[in-house]
Design a protein around this nucleic acid. Structure first.
Lengths: 135, 135
DNA sequence: TGCGGAAGTTACTTTGAGGGAACCGGGCCA
DNA sequence: TGGCCCGGTTCCCTCAAAGTAACTTCCGCA
């Protein structure tokens, strides 16, 4: 069995697929934090339909609060998944659209959606079986 | 623009890729909750190296607490990603291994890792640029 | 006889993601 | 002139995820 974790310069390190990852420089964390957020993937999927304005997104996803909508959009913008463009109309309107990076990420999200729908039944079955055993 | 969200029987619903998802029956949520957990994907990757015992996993991932190791393994077992086998040796030893479902999920995780490493630089650059603008 | 490993459990605490509600300035419109 | 829409911001609160630490049972070993 080959070792996949250890310490370098006192920092915890793990080796996956031949690559070294540490906590302070972990590419996967950066991405998982976006996938894991409650609204982030949904936002990406919404914007996959085309560029949209703030209020359009609100109408599209009525469950999200204004606060979380703003925050999610900022987070995605910060990491380069979406672009924010202000048009100097009266009143000013703001448009959000996927960047090329966002488009690329979208294909990953789509695979996630595909896998999930394909294996959802198996997961639910496993869960039910497990819970039945644990009575 | 086509509508991708609305209500059915009073429950919030969203349509993605031609499929209807609701909060109470959302395949993607079940999977994202596993991807999003702090240790879950790492555990899957660790077990990709082969079946392992509890203490081997502890040694492999020294940063995880015993409590979180147990909990993560239970969560993954519950959803059918891993199997837990007790061998009646003295003292009893317990082995964890990926199920076929877990193997299938692993390929998804690997794609995530690949995408992340490939686009990590772009993400960090976007972040730096954003933060510089927001001073 | 008491130490340590294996595989946990239990109780307590901390952290931060997310939710709710109110507020804001500018313009438009009736 | 008093609302309403647009695109937010601010404050406060809650709850669940994660961390810390101590305890456990069974065994072998020296």
């Amino acid at each position: 069995m080959n070792k996949i974790a250890g310490k370098i310069d006192g920092e915890q390190v793990i080796v996956v697929m031949g690559q070294v990852f540490s906590r302070s420089n972990c590419p996967v964390r950066d991405v998982i934090d976006n996938i894991g957020g409650k609204w982030n993937t949904l936002m990406i999927l919404a914007l996959a339909e085309g560029p949209m304005r703030f209020s359009a997104l609100r109408r599209l996803i009525p469950d999200i609060s204004q606060r979380m909508l703003t925050q999610t959009l900022r987070d995605l913008q910060r990491d380069g998944y979406i672009d924010r463009t202000v048009f100097p109309t009266q009143p000013p309107s703001v448009e959000y659209r996927l960047t090329p990076l966002g488009q690329s990420f979208l294909s990953l999200v789509k695979q996630l959606v595909d896998w999930s729908t394909e294996h959802h039944a198996a997961i639910r079955a496993a869960r039910t079986a497990y819970d039945a055993r644990e009575l």
